[in-house]
Design a protein around this nucleic acid. Sequence first.
DNA 1: GTCTACATATAGAGAGCCTACATGTAGACT
DNA 2: AGTCTACATGTAGGCTCTCTATATGTAGAC
Lengths: 110, 110
Amino acid sequence: MNPDALRGHMDALLLSVLEARPLHGYAIIEALQERSGGVLNVPTGTVYPALRRLERVGYLASEWATVGGRKRRTYRLTDSGRKQLEGERSAWHEFTSVIGSVLRADATTT
Amino acid sequence: MNPDALRGHMDALLLSVLEARPLHGYAIIEALQERSGGVLNVPTGTVYPALRRLERVGYLASEWATVGGRKRRTYRLTDSGRKQLEGERSAWHEFTSVIGSVLRADATTT
DNA sequence: GTCTACATATAGAGAGCCTACATGTAGACT
DNA sequence: AGTCTACATGTAGGCTCTCTATATGTAGAC
């Protein structure tokens, strides 16, 4: 999976994975792998900064917890984040529809 | 349309639009608009450098022409570019499938 | 004592898309 | 003659995001 292809879609992925329940960063990475059938291996250097960015703009909120002696920062969707996810989903549909229509365009079309 | 979303998909769009016949830059921009129903307004500052990049890596070839007193640089797909377009199309399908599966994931899935 | 899994974080690189600007022709309209 | 719009190409610099590489530390298995 070409990294550049993910540009601008990372937010949607992260918000989506947090939709059902809060998760910490490491678990988010695993969830993305699972849901994508192992294809999506997003490095920590991408996920952690992205989560902080999404928190900074108010789509996520976080709190620290200690589980089994290990510290976790658990992220959850805010109301604003839930609205944003809706927007991301419709943007995704428009995006695939538009690009798809160009890629599939009949070779004989003017 | 969020500009970042196009990242990594521009090549596919340009190659696809040149699949049926050679076009010059300005006509490519118009073709993208048409095929996308007016949604895709790619600025010249994106298209011209991208075309040069694609020529540099061998997917496109170009030649100058003068039509109605105006100079045009007309681009056409090379054989290598045609193969690349195939690859771009299958990459696109994998991409939409993977992202789609994450975005649509059942809220109750683990 | 070592290795792997778990867990978070940052610095710096790299790439590409965008804004803004520069340049020039042709044709229509005033 | 002068202005405006459409046509047509191009570059410089900025911006943002993703990635690589690195750092740090705990827990548990072997």
